[in-house]
Amino acid sequence: MKTKICLIGIGKIAVDQHVPAISGSDDWTLAATVSRVGTVDGVPSYTDFDQMLADHPDIPVISLCLPTVPRFEYAAKAMAAGRHVMLEKPPGATISEVHMLQAMAKDHGVSLFATWHSRAAVAVQPAKTWLADKSIKKAHITWKEDVRKWHPNQDWVFEPGGMGVFDPGINALSIITEILPFEMRLQSAILEFPTNRDTPIAAKMQWADNISGEFDWRQEGSESWDITLETDGGLAELKEGGARFFIDGVEQPVDGLDEYPALYKHMKTLVDSNTSDIDVRPLIQVADALTLGKRISTDAFAF
């Protein structure tokens, strides 16, 4: 029997990724949605989360797809009602929020999954395995895309808590914190803020151990979602957001579920075992950049 799940926040990411992943799963059935405006055909829809909880005590799992700032209250309310919770990335607007949610999950005896969808890309674990016994000489992240394409007219990404270019950039940070055989320590960052916005549109970061990164939301055309690592065993490259893995220019065979189906498969395992999976390391890197980074003003931005 499939497990019932409720999606909160029926926006672009829910429509593009979550709904298809749930619909194609043997583990889940989408039993309700909660959103100010979005709905899913054939699924009971609500605008009031409390009403959904009251009407559906039979739905044990809540998946939160809404922006980070309002997400904490929904997650806390869901767990207080005894529901397991799955969080879209990043798992919170602040690190302390995530720690609080982790404690709540333990107190209420429910599962909490702080997802990082790019970690579920098919080439990430093969890259991690290959790098495990290598000495890393140098590593570089190039993460550039067009905000108008991926977040059309979504002003919340430039509001406090929206994280700006780190909304996609945290995907790269989720990968590199997973595959490196050591912890990262940020040394410096340069953050470009549009004069009319509250979050950065571009960033350059430098970590210890010769690791660097460039993030930009102004790139038009094709995306650059790449991580290169020079090692004592050769050059490793993760391309297309972790979908492809190369060693010394030779593409390696990889296989597995797509990112969001893999996340929902893992969530089912967590619920069945009543365990949680929370890793704040990617969020820590963003917080470190915003704490340590030098702020530079750049041209005003409009969609």
Rank of each mutant, 00 (worst) to 15 (best):
F113T: 02
A114Q: 02
T115A: 15
T115P: 00
S118E: 15
S118H: 09
R119F: 01
A120S: 09
V122K: 15
A123H: 01
A123K: 03
P126H: 11
P126K: 10
A127S: 06
W130F: 12
D133S: 15
K134Y: 08
K134P: 04
K134M: 13
S135I: 11
S135N: 11
H140C: 06
I141Q: 05
T142G: 08
T142K: 12
T142M: 10
T142C: 08
T142D: 15
W143N: 00
W143Y: 02
E145P: 01
D146K: 10
V147T: 11
V147H: 13
K149E: 10
V157C: 03
F158H: 10
E159F: 03
P160T: 06
G161F: 09
M163W: 14
M163Y: 14
M163H: 14
M163N: 05
F166G: 05
D167I: 12
D167C: 14
P168H: 11
P168T: 04
G169Y: 05
I170N: 11
I170C: 12
N171E: 09
L173G: 02
S174E: 07
I175P: 08
I175E: 10
T177N: 15
E178A: 06
E178N: 02
E178R: 03
I179E: 07
L180S: 08
M184A: 09
R185H: 11
Q187M: 12
S188C: 02
L191R: 02
L191N: 01
F193M: 12
N196I: 08
P200D: 12
A203D: 01
M205A: 13
M205N: 02
Q206S: 14
Q206W: 08
A208F: 00
N210T: 10
E214C: 06
E214W: 01
E214K: 07
F215P: 01
D216H: 00
D216Q: 03
W217V: 07
Q219L: 15
E220T: 13
E220A: 13
E220W: 03
E220K: 14
S222I: 04
E223I: 05
S224H: 04
W225A: 07
W225G: 00
D226S: 13
D226G: 03
I227T: 05
I227H: 09
T228W: 13
T231N: 07
D232T: 11
L235W: 04
L235M: 12
A236N: 01
K239S: 08
E240I: 07
E240R: 13
G242Q: 07
G242C: 07
R244E: 10
F245T: 09
F245M: 14
I247D: 01
I247Y: 00
G249C: 12
G249N: 11
